[in-house]
Design a protein around this nucleic acid. Structure first.
Lengths: 271, 271
DNA sequence: CTTGAGTCTCCCCTAAGGGGAGGCCGTAAC
DNA sequence: GTTACGGCCTCCCCTTAGGGGAGACTCAAG
């Protein structure tokens, strides 16, 4: 009366692969109606297709085999099913939230890298004279080695977070180049905000400036400084303090990148 | 000069477990600066902490070890990095989309199950007399066995999809109960829509009705029918054709559920 | 000298099957 | 009669990113 299907036929009917069917047999969630003693051949009844479909559905909904087993245990009893569904729902929701954060971070990184690449493409690496707009910054005055400025940026980043709207800058208050006991400010352009601890918010003045984009690691910056200062002297300008360094492209959020491709714009306001 | 860290110290500094460090060593993405020949002890340089952090970041962004390996191969070369980032971004996006569909489906199922449970809780299973509102339905007239109506519902579901706004119903056009060659319509309440192929859209009339909610499998429906007809006779009403069956709760989208808990409301319009 | 903490390698385990080897069975073609 | 083919079986290894633990070795302190 009831026709039994071979595993191949059942596979076609249920859209589950042979491997999967054997696996489900082993796991006990879909046991063939009959297993021939001598050959071990599996035979399924047509009515088991329905159960196979249920399992497929549950699997698509993200339930593990173990969970499916539990769920099918109380096949008619709906007591815990809602709870299980809800916990799975919460789980998926959590995963979506996580993934969206990741996605956001990836997008940020991508735009940043692209921006830097574009920058690299249309930078001339020649001395330029241009008018600079005023810029509102959050600045932390520091003393020591220039390379310590990272901590200043970190502190500003922590406080001003999403208000930051430009590349990090360094103000050199010393008239000359100093190795060890330099007087400088780490600062970031911001859209607003108030003073906080040792971070001051103020506006850098506008004005005519002589600038040069330096390409390469930071320890070769001096070459570009000298080039700029020579130009300023030859043109008869006088440079105003502090000079500015804008870190157009440095070590990224993830990759250090190649220091030979770091870009730093040096700006001297002149009159 | 350069101090080397034992794996334990490096583990604390990098926030990667011992197991993970050994694994990354094996995979070649974070090879200790020095491995002592005799003992096999691993020693890391402090500068490797930075690389460890890069790896952590990439791992958090969902990159596999294999991908991290590729990415770190061209540590300075940024040529392919954007492409990799973008493909990962697309991948995450796809996963989010998938998960949200799953989440939606789960939510639908949950509300449905809850609704059915509420229904079960406040149903009286007594004969009631009530006034029935008119209801717009999409109906497919069929002939055969009642149990074939599922295909009718499927057809209507395919055509009217999101316009469906009620429980599936059956109209019995026969005056009497027929097993085999019954004349009935499978129909679903809809918010609108036009006739399509053999699916008609029309309004079921309002009126005074005698109803009874039947609990149990469909093959015991006759008991409730007889109870209702006896009541109608004893009250001196005359029943109008077609009678209606409303499938308040039947086999769910996933689970068959327990047929003993199926709920079906039988409605006879009377005058 | 001993002890405890740190480290090593090696082996097994995860979830949900996929891939393939080698063997058994029945049928159809030659 | 035989051979080829197709369907089925079991058994074993493989995948990710490490976790858990056993047994052995090393290092520093008491």
């Amino acid at each position: 009366m009831r026709k039994l299907l071979s595993i191949g036929d059942f596979s076609k009917a249920s859209q589950l692969t042979l491997k999967t069917l054997r696996f489900y047999h082993e796991k006990g969630i879909l046991v063939p109606e009959r297993v021939e003693a001598g050959t071990g051949y599996r035979f399924y009844s047509a009515s088991q297709i329905e159960r196979a479909n249920v399992i497929r559905q549950l699997r698509d909904l993200g339930f593990s085999v173990r969970e499916i087993q539990d769920l099918l245990q109380f096949a008619g009893d709906e007591h815990d099913i809602v709870a299980e569904l809800e916990s799975k729902h919460a789980e998926v929701k959590r995963r979506v939230a996580d993934d969206r954060r990741t996605q956001q971070r990836l997008a940020t990184i991508i735009t940043q890298v692209k921006e830097e690449r574009a920058l690299m493409a249309d930078t001339t690496f020649e001395i330029e004279e241009k008018d600079i707009e005023p810029v509102l910054v959050a600045a932390k005055r520091m003393r020591g080695k220039y390379s310590d400025c990272g901590q200043g940026f970190k502190a500003i980043g922590k406080r001003f977070g999403f208000k930051i709207n430009g590349k990090p800058m360094l103000l050199c208050h010393d008239g000359e180049y100093k190795e060890d006991d330099a007087d400088f400010s780490a600062c970031m352009p911001v859209s607003g905000g108030a003073n906080h601890d040792d971070i001051e918010v103020y506006e850098l003045p506008a004005g005519k400036a002589v600038t040069l984009v330096h390409k390469g690691p930071y320890d070769t910056l001096r070459v570009s400084y000298e080039k700029l200062l020579a130009h300023i002297a030859s043109e008869g300008y006088s440079a105003k303090s502090p000079s500015r360094e804008v870190y157009l492209k440095g070590p990224g959020m993830i990759f250090q990148g190649n220091p030979n491709n770091y870009l730093t714009e040096i700006q001297f306001l002149v009159e």
